[in-house]
Amino acid sequence: MAGHKTYDRRFAACPVEVTLDLIDGKWKGVVLYHLGNGPLRFNELRRVTPNTTQRMLTKQLRELEADGLVIRTVYPEIPPRVDYRLSPRGETLQPIIAALKAWGTQHLAEMLGGAEGQEAAAETLPRRRASAA
């Protein structure tokens, strides 16, 4: 597949390493999570990742696109509109992202303590967009 990472035989022994290599990056998992709710424009992604810089987010999106996990669509309008969505290959990562979210929610609840912690953990997670079913 053009544009995708290629791996030599040393990766064949550890498929987990291959997966982590694709989603490793400070913001890639977060971007994949939010794109699981549907397409987003760049500024919408900036809003849901407020601790990243424009440069870093652009870099992470380019890598996700090069690896075939995200599709960037430029609409021929004035001014140009660009959105990002998961590719079919990126969609296959959604169970992994959901498992990471579930584990993170549980871990955060445990760290914050009990039912109170569960509520606080739920509040810290991004809200799903209304258009997502």
Rank of each mutant, 00 (worst) to 15 (best):
residue 60 Q to N: 14
residue 27 W to A: 03
residue 45 L to R: 03
residue 55 R to C: 07
residue 12 A to N: 08
residue 32 L to R: 05
residue 24 D to E: 07
residue 53 T to R: 01
residue 23 I to R: 09
residue 42 F to A: 00
residue 36 G to R: 06
residue 12 A to E: 14
residue 8 D to E: 14
residue 9 R to C: 02
residue 11 F to E: 07
residue 49 T to D: 08
residue 38 G to I: 05
residue 20 L to E: 15
residue 11 F to R: 14
residue 27 W to E: 03
residue 36 G to V: 14
residue 54 Q to H: 03
residue 43 N to S: 13
residue 24 D to H: 08
residue 54 Q to G: 08
residue 33 Y to V: 02
residue 57 L to N: 04
residue 23 I to C: 07
residue 25 G to K: 02
residue 13 A to V: 10
residue 53 T to A: 01
residue 57 L to R: 02
residue 28 K to E: 09
residue 44 E to N: 03
residue 56 M to I: 11
residue 22 L to E: 14
residue 15 P to V: 15
residue 47 R to I: 04
residue 14 C to Q: 12
residue 12 A to K: 11
residue 53 T to E: 03
residue 33 Y to I: 07
residue 55 R to T: 12
residue 45 L to W: 00
residue 50 P to R: 00
residue 37 N to Q: 10
residue 39 P to K: 13
residue 29 G to H: 07
residue 6 T to E: 14
residue 47 R to M: 03
residue 6 T to Y: 12
residue 26 K to V: 12
residue 60 Q to T: 06
residue 25 G to C: 02
residue 23 I to E: 06
residue 45 L to P: 00
residue 16 V to K: 08
residue 20 L to Y: 13
residue 13 A to S: 05
residue 8 D to S: 06
residue 16 V to A: 13
residue 21 D to K: 01
residue 9 R to S: 03
residue 11 F to L: 10
residue 58 T to A: 13
residue 17 E to G: 14
residue 11 F to N: 09
residue 18 V to H: 04
residue 39 P to M: 05
residue 36 G to M: 13
residue 54 Q to C: 11
residue 17 E to M: 07
residue 57 L to P: 02
residue 60 Q to Y: 09
residue 22 L to W: 08
residue 16 V to P: 13
residue 11 F to Q: 10
residue 29 G to A: 09
residue 15 P to M: 10
residue 15 P to Q: 12
residue 60 Q to F: 05
residue 48 V to G: 01
residue 10 R to L: 10
residue 40 L to I: 01
residue 36 G to D: 12
residue 57 L to V: 06
residue 50 P to W: 00
residue 49 T to V: 08
residue 51 N to D: 13
residue 13 A to G: 01
residue 8 D to R: 03
residue 42 F to V: 01
residue 27 W to T: 01
residue 9 R to T: 13
residue 56 M to K: 06
residue 32 L to F: 14
residue 57 L to Y: 04
residue 23 I to Q: 07
